[in-house]
Amino acid sequence: MRVIVDQNKCVASGQCVLAAGAVFDQHEEDGTVLLLNASPPHELHDAVRRAAALCPARAISIRTSARALDT
């Protein structure tokens, strides 16, 4: 799993931090998303998918390579 965040789209709702605090944090100044781990381990994938689904600005996208599909 590869996580991509779009800083410009982010509206600092904090939903990603609540869903997956090990993967996402917020910039001190304006609360926009700070990606801590672009290739999170398998056990965090559900939480990352939840973060992406809950993000009101749709600023989180997830790519899964063919080899790493669903891992």
């Binding site: 509206v11 600092a12 904090g14 931090v17 609540l18 605090g21 944090d25 917020q26 910039h27 001190e28 100044e29 304006d30 609360g31 926009t32």
Partner: peptide, 12 residues
Amino acid sequence: LRRMVTGTFTIR
């Protein structure tokens, strides 16, 4: 304009 105030409402 929104980003002028969002820093106050981070989870931390």
